[in-house]
Simulated assay, not measured.
Amino acid sequence: MLIAVIAACEIGFWVVLAAGLAARYPLRLRRTGTALLLCVPLVDVVLLATTVIDLRGGATAGTGHGLAAAYLGYSVAFGHSMVRWADERFAHRFAGGPPPRGKPGYGSARVRYEWREFGKAALATALACGLLLAMVALVGDADRTEALTAWLGRLGTVLAIWSLWPITHTLWPAKPKDVSQDPAEHAPPR
Rank of each mutant, 00 (worst) to 15 (best):
G96A: 13
L36R: 08
A134K: 05
D143R: 03
D87L: 05
P99M: 04
L152M: 00
E114I: 06
F78H: 15
P98S: 14
H80N: 13
L67M: 10
L72N: 06
D44S: 04
A150G: 03
A137L: 02
A122M: 05
D54S: 11
A59V: 01
E117I: 03
K120E: 08
T125M: 07
L148C: 00
A147D: 09
L132A: 02
E114F: 07
T50W: 03
V52T: 07
S81R: 15
L155C: 01
F94C: 12
R110V: 07
G66W: 04
W151I: 00
A150Y: 06
H65T: 02
S108Y: 11
A61K: 00
A134E: 09
V40T: 12
T63L: 13
M135H: 15
K120I: 08
L36E: 12
V139H: 04
V158C: 00
A142R: 08
T145V: 07
G58F: 03
V46L: 04
G57E: 13
L127V: 15
T60G: 06
A150L: 06
R84Q: 14
D141C: 02
G140W: 11
L138G: 01
R101V: 07
V76A: 14
L47V: 09
A124H: 02
L37V: 06
A91D: 14
H92T: 11
G66K: 01
D44Y: 08
D44C: 00
